[in-house]
Design a protein around this nucleic acid. Structure first.
Ligand code: ZN
Ligand code: ZN
Ligand code: ZN
Ligand code: ZN
Lengths: 133, 133
DNA sequence: ATCTTCATGACAATCATTCTCATCGCGTCC
DNA sequence: GGACGCGATGAGAATGATTGTCATGAAGAT
């Protein structure tokens, strides 16, 4: 199965988008990234941001979460599987490990005869700063 | 704090909607519930289904999940906190317990100074029937 | 430099969900 | 049983995130 996936071309826009995501500590939506780029003088189009972030997510270059209100947000994280604890107030994000969860997941799959199990595990809370406000 | 929440009135529509959700083993979206009701002769409106299901979810009468493609789906589950293992093919859902996750969540909250932690934990897979298919 | 092909951007189109508002009908109190 | 007040309903418009369209631009290979 020599994959015939099209090569990702290096363009000015993708570089800008990558930089913008990396500059953000918190998860950001395509629209937010687009706004920031526009405000800093870029002329990148919104659809391009959507496409680039999707591609980066598919390639594992960024992590994605779905915000409580349903929007997709992206973040450049540490390599390796992990989960997120996100502040509802300021978006501050902490990467967390859940030792045991992965094996527990495999056990569940076996028990119920499910295959190709994928898990969606995120935590939302209010950070100390935001609690103090 | 004697809550002044408006009383939920019993209407034909809400009864129909409740019955429709309870009749479904799998999670169903408002639109799906609406379609089923319409096909079985009901004249209930789509907005009403959206509103009723939201109210039922807020009241803890049904569980909600967000499907991988972003839609909100509802299901009448067993009382008590639990998570879900959902088949991507047929929607078959298994309620699962994750012993240790809740305490682990509290530990994480304490460690990072986050309060009011809420977790979003769902599993998606392919059930035996759908794998065989 | 040329050519092939993917990438881009402006804009239209989707589509789930929410809003508006005139009307209906529960629940309650005579 | 009948009248009332207010939440509930439904038809349709509106919203808003995301995706599709397509003519044009520009990587990357030759
Ligand atoms: Zn991450
Ligand atoms: Zn915060
Ligand atoms: Zn459930
Ligand atoms: Zn299945």
């Amino acid at each position: 199965m020599t994959s015939t996936e099209p090569v990702q071309r290096r363009t000015r826009q993708r570089a800008e988008i990558r930089d913008a995501v990396e500059a953000s500590q918190a998860f950001a939506t395509s629209q937010e990234i687009h706004d920031r780029l526009r405000h800093s003088g870029s002329t990148v189009g919104l659809a391009t941001v959507y496409r680039a972030l999707q591609a980066m997510a598919a390639g594992g270059e960024v992590d994605t979460i779905r915000t409580p209100d349903g929007q997709v947000a992206y973040r450049t994280c540490t390599p390796g599987h992990h989960h997120h604890l996100v502040c509802r107030g300021c978006g501050k994000t902490v990467e967390i490990d859940l030792p045991g969860l992965e094996s527990q997941t495999r056990a569940i799959a076996r028990e119920y005869g499910f295959a190709e199990i994928d898990h969606e595990v995120e935590f939302f809370g209010t950070c100390a700063d935001c609690t103090a406000g």
